[in-house]
Design a protein around this nucleic acid. Structure first.
Lengths: 238, 238
DNA sequence: GATTATAATTTGTATATACAAGTTATGCAA
DNA sequence: TTGCATAACTTGTATATACAAATTATAATC
């Protein structure tokens, strides 16, 4: 409703997802689109750049904006999508178990991660994710109380991101993620259905707000046979 | 030498890497930068957007372009001394063993991946990577002969990408990657020092040229204890 | 019919202007 | 000093123009 180019981007994304283009088709030209949307060419170009960054199209000079085959890779674990969004798209039954919800004085370890004062208070949330009857993901969240004053079990059971963005109105901007494989801990064995697996895939994320403050550190531990990470990456100009 | 905004981007990247800014500092304002580089504000904005996309800065309206702590991103967690060791070893003792370099009629399997004619010819390259005396990565590459006519063992021993981009002048544009964990194969056991590991981390990549043709499919199989994936992700506008 | 040259089309770059929206600094008044 | 309104500054959006570079369509030529 706000930005023209974001609206145009969403409109074209919707068209692509509805299957109005086959992969290899070209969109209307920038001039045609600017006429169609009653706007300037630069505004259209901003929308098309968003499409390009997110892997929907590839712009080819002299030719046009070619629609890419994105269906093959429609498991958007990359980016910053949360568990709830993910499982909704996967369309399976999911449940969240909240094992711990405490407010502690930030341990030195967590505070070095978040770059915060060791005296400040930090929420600790431990949740397991059950998909298709199996508990396969263990999420451990550490959140600064400065930015998120109140947390309830109810919120933790639904979506933290939804609460933070919609209720608190905070703008999550970017995250740094690390993926490694580690041997299982006692905690993993307690809260997950490991089916004999000795190792888990660990995704550690540092989440930042738009004002560059780090407010959340998350450790997401996945059973390896149920883990998948999909990424679309453009080659950076040199 | 070509594009102003790319040049300005590279210049600022170099300044940041030289440590001329501490994290939290702001760059000069867009107006000041445009004066400094003798160019328009829009050109500066293109350079700053590149910096933002690649995790160097965070733009805050009304405030400025805040320099992010990118060093921290490279080594995010305490236990990552091994990664440092790893990258140090990368410079010193890094060897590549070429186990197979053949030109075959594309199997149906590979050609569905690359979306090519089953009659076309496909290079198959199998290489293991030895770091610090241990063979820990097994790379299997499938490359269309249409785009890469000739390949030698010498090229495979050095860098395929370097040859493709610099020698052949092809522009690699984007890739789709998938990361999963799988049980080891006989091939893994033959070419890798698995040290008893039963599983490997598999990165499957589909690499595309600027004209949207898929020309390469790669399967990179890593010993789990030596695997690390680091990612910077911005939250996509909705 | 095939080849070549030309024109038209399409995206890329650079510049310029105007205003909106958010942050910070300033200065005035209580 | 404190508080508040104001001004100054900074990034975001939208629009416009001109030209460059790459592709495609068209027409001319052999």
């Amino acid at each position: 409703m706000k930005n023209k180019y974001v609206e145009i981007y969403n409109k074209i994304v919707k068209d692509i997802q509805k299957g109005e283009y086959s992969s290899g088709d070209t969109l209307l030209s920038e001039h045609e689109l600017s006429r169609h949307f009653q706007t300037s060419r630069e505004t259209i170009r901003k929308a098309l750049n968003l499409l390009s960054q997110n892997g929907y199209i590839q712009k080819v000079r002299g030719k046009g904006s070619v629609v890419l085959d994105r269906d093959k890779f429609e498991f958007p674990v990359s980016g910053l999508t949360s568990f709830k969004e993910l499982s909704e798209r996967l369309g399976k039954s999911f449940r969240t178990h909240v094992h711990e919800l405490t407010l502690n004085k930030g341990s030195s370890q967590v505070c070095t991660q978040l770059n915060c004062d060791p005296a400040s208070h930090v929420w600790k949330v431990v949740r397991s994710r059950e998909i298709g009857g199996e508990r396969i993901i263990l999420d451990k969240d550490y959140i600064l109380q400065d930015t998120v004053p109140d947390l309830t079990k109810e919120i933790a059971k639904n979506s933290l991101y939804e609460y933070i963005e919609n209720e608190l109105g905070l703008e999550i901007s970017f995250a740094k993620k690390e993926i490694v494989v580690e041997t299982v801990t006692e905690e993993d064995q307690e809260f997950l259905d490991l089916k004999g697996h000795q190792q888990v895939v660990v995704i550690r994320s540092y989440v930042y707000l738009a004002d560059t403050t780090a407010f959340q550190f998350t450790e997401s531990r996945h059973r390896p046979d149920k883990f998948q990470f999909v990424d679309f990456a453009r080659r950076t100009k040199v």
